[in-house]
């Protein structure tokens, strides 16, 4: 019997759990996850659990460099407005994490089981790929998924395999998010990867709605203070959440 796994299940039972994931790295998962949380937090308290134990970008996006407090209830979150944030970065601080494959699941179960989540909506920021994190999440909870891809052929080909797995595993894929689709310029829209038809085709094939998000060069200025960002990307995320 594994008490931490049971505790993780209990903590998330009955909550709305949204997992933001992609098979591909560098597609903007953490940014999208943070903007989903920030938008939802305007209506209700929302938690983010960063399961990317090697990258933990969420803390960097919010500019947090402290360690989590620990109480009788477990790991206490960092609070940014109405957003509560949990991350392995808040346990180890500013240093690398290296783990054997067999121990990854134990770390993730510790993080999910010990995080003192009191919010009704929980956003899970997933690492890229289809490793232990994906299996651990499935052991703990059946989330709704926002699947992020770039509208590039390579990214879509990789993400397609993840989508196949999710559908095979009866995990609900709520949206496919084609991130960094276009850039607004005075001369009109520019599509750096070409028109996102391949993403549309993937969505149509499985009856999943595709959302198109723009590139906002301004966003870079908000790395470390994404909670202050209110630009076009946040607005576009807000539209598909409502």
């Amino acid at each position: 019997m594994n008490p931490l796994l049971e505790l993780a299940r209990e903590r998330l039972r009955g909550k709305r759990v949204i997992a933001v994931m992609s098979a591909k790295g560098g597609v903007g998962k953490s940014t999208v996850a943070s903007l989903i949380a920030l938008n939802l937090s305007e209506r209700q308290n929302t938690a983010i659990i960063d399961l990317d134990i090697y990258g933990n970008s969420t803390l960097k996006l919010f500019g947090i460099s402290k360690l989590h407090g620990v109480s009788k209830n477990g790991i206490e979150p960092f609070k940014v407005g109405n957003v509560s944030i949990f991350s392995i970065g808040g346990i180890v601080g500013d240093r690398y994490v290296v783990l054997t494959g067999s121990e990854e699941g134990n770390v993730l179960e510790s993080l999910l089981g010990l995080s003192n989540v009191n919010e009704e909506t929980v956003i899970i920021d997933m690492p890229p790929g289809m490793g232990e994190e994906l299996l651990t999440l499935k052991r703990v909870v059946n989330p709704e998924v926002f699947l992020v891809t770039l509208p590039s052929k390579l990214s879509v080909m990789t993400v397609k395999h993840m989508l196949d797995y999710l559908l095979d595993s009866k995990i609900e894929v709520k949206r496919i998010i084609a991130n960094m689709c276009y850039l607004k310029t005075p001369e009109g829209l520019i599509y750096p990867f070409g028109k996102p038809d391949i993403v549309e085709d993937l969505g149509k094939k499985h009856g999943i709605r595709v959302e198109h998000l723009p590139v906002d060069p301004e966003l870079e200025n908000f790395a470390g203070r994404i909670q202050e960002y209110s630009g076009v990307l946040k607005e576009e995320v807000r539209k598909f959440l409502s």
Binding site: V70, V92, R95, Y96, V97, L99, E103, S110
Partner: peptide
């Protein structure tokens, strides 16, 4: 470095780090 609530206390698997 971390005190009583150190990473190994919370998640002993982190020892390899």
């Amino acid at each position: 470095d971390y005190g009583e609530e150190n990473p190994l206390h919370i998640a002993p698997s982190l020892i390899t780090a």
